[in-house]
Each structure stands twice: as C-alpha cells, then as structure tokens.
C-alpha cells in the first residue's frame, strides 16, 4: 500500500508513512515515487561531491551513516536502503529534508531553506540558519491569522505572470517545546520529530493549498551589539549573496547547478521579490514585538 502526499506542488507516493507530512488523496500517476529497495554503496563512475554524496548524471547518492542510503533519481524517484537497525520512520526526516531538497534541485527549482506564510493571496518567506527561529516566527504569524505555506522547504517556481510562486511543502511545523508553550499551541502539538527530542510536530490552524506568489523574503538575524533591531532592505549584490547562502543545502545547489544559470535564476527572482534583513532579539518573551514590527512592515509595503 502506498501513502500519498503533496510536497512543493508534487504528488508523492511512498511505501511507508512519512512522519510529519500531511496525507492527501492518492494521485493516479504520482510525480515522485519513494520506495524501499537496495541501493549501491557508491555510484559507479560517479563524482564524489563530498564525503557522503556521489553524483552521476541524473542520479544522486546520499549516505546517512547508520541510517540509510538514498538514491535520488532524475527528480522523480527516491530509493532508500535502510542500514541495520534503522527504521523507515527514522528515515522520514531525511526524505522530507535533504533528499527532497536534492530532488527539487534536480527539477531546477530555486529552493530556499525557510518557512513561508501567506495572507491575502501573497506570501512571505522567513529564512535564516538552523535554529534561527524561522518556524517559531511562522507559528506566531499563524496565530495571527496567516496561513502556513512551508515549514522548511521553500521551492520557488515561475508563476503565470512571471512572479515566483511557492507551493506548500505539505508538512507540519516543527517547534521546540519552549516555543509551543510560549505560543500556547499545546493542543495542536503532535508527536516528537525524533525520539527523545524536545522538538514536536505542530499542526497549524490554516494551511495554504494553492501556489502563492512570493512578495518578500526576510532573513533573520539576532540583534546583538552593535546590531540593533529593525528591518532593512538588502541591496541587490547582498540579496544575490544571501540567496546563495539561504538556498537549501547551498553547497549542493552550487555543485549540482551550472553557475550562469543559477545567477540568472536568482536575478530573475529578485526582479519580483524584495529581500530584507530582519534583526530582532531571539528572546521568546519578545517575539510579539517582532511580530508587530513585521506586520507593520508588511502593511507599509502594501500601501
């Protein structure tokens, strides 16, 4: 039996349930198949891109030590060979994260590592390094009536009018327990992301279902002296640099892509999307201030 999902606009059929993904109706011909089968240790004739990555033509092999080997093929298929003692449940996070990120790169999407939320038919993306507070800020905006679009994988593709659109990554928010408590989301809290891990899946109140045009990207930064709180537009060269940095697995994107094409892709996107640096305190008690500043900024930009 296959489990069905919709991730970044793609219909997915998987041999096992993907923890943290929201199940959907099965598609007649899914865009992506995820299955358990044997996978070689290395790719014959392939180039080693890193200690745990090989690439050969349209095939990409990812080795997660003591967990599994993932063969990601032509943007259409993820084949998984579990290592001894590992379970498919353990592999879910990798499938939804790195493996799907690579698959989207194979399909030529510009993939940002970020959460995105929408209101009034337009979305904003929130980027920043791991642990920067992307999901927490997205959850706080969802509390204020915004719809969740993505928690983690923010794949951009050109919409009908040329503006980039993002499609839901089909998953729940991942929040640390302290953020669940600060946002009073206890009732929506689900199971733990990983066993013995104080991070939980949280169902947002409202989830976007359609492709949503992206209006702006905010890159999170902690305000420590001498940095002060505020939202500043990024000049073009800085925005280009930031897109390279905030891409999902940026090193892989640069190695898998052709540089002039990647530059053209980022530049094409910045014709439509504005990019800002959002400097704010990380203290959860001061999260409401950040939310107010962001909402005011959004209203001002819309005026």
């Amino acid at each position: 039996m296959a489990y069905s999902y919709r991730i970044s606009g793609l219909t997915v059929a998987c041999d096992f349930p993907l923890a943290g993904a929201v199940a959907t109706e099965p598609a007649v011909t899914p865009d992506v198949r995820v299955r358990l089968a044997d996978v070689p240790q290395t790719l014959e004739g392939g180039a080693a891109l890193g200690p745990n990555w090989d690439m050969f033509g349209e095939d990409f092999l990812l080795r997660a030590p003591r967990l599994a080997r993932f063969l990601i093929r032509g943007g259409r298929e993820i084949v998984i060979a579990l290592e001894d003692g590992a379970t498919a449940r353990d592999a879910s996070a990798y499938v939804l994260g790195t493996a799907f990120g690579i698959l989207l790169h194979q399909r030529g999407a510009l993939v940002l590592h970020g959460a995105a939320v929408a209101r009034g038919g337009e979305a904003i993306a929130i980027c920043g390094h791991s642990g920067a507070g992307k999901s927490t800020l997205a959850a706080a905006l969802c509390r204020r009536g915004w719809a969740l679009v993505t928690d983690d994988l923010c794949a951009l593709s050109p919409g009908d009018d040329g503006r980039p659109v993002i499609r839901p990554d089909g998953r729940q928010l991942k929040l640390w327990q302290e953020a669940v408590e600060a946002l009073d989301l206890g009732e929506q809290r689900g199971e733990a992301v990983l066993a013995r891990f104080e991070k939980y899946f949280v169902a947002p109140a409202e989830v976007a279902t359609e492709a949503t045009p992206l209006r702006a990207i905010y890159v999170l930064r902690e305000s420590r002296p001498p940095l002060t709180d505020g939202i500043e537009p990024l000049p073009l060269p800085d925005a280009m640099h930031m897109l390279d940095r905030e891409a999902y697995r940026p090193g892989l994107r640069l190695k898998m892509g052709v540089r002039p094409e990647l530059v053209a892709q980022s530049a094409g996107m910045l014709a439509h999307v504005r990019m800002f640096e959002l400097t704010r305190p990380r203290d959860l008690a001061r999260l409401p201030e950040t939310v107010e500043a962001l909402l005011a900024h959004w209203e001002l930009a819309a005026a």
Binding site: P260, V263, A264, A267
Partner: peptide
C-alpha cells in the same frame, strides 16, 4: 544577469 527591466547584477 539582468534584474527586471533596468538593473544588472
């Protein structure tokens, strides 16, 4: 690479 109608990076 061009950015919109006017700019270039």
């Amino acid at each position: 690479a061009p950015v919109g109608e006017d700019d270039l990076v």
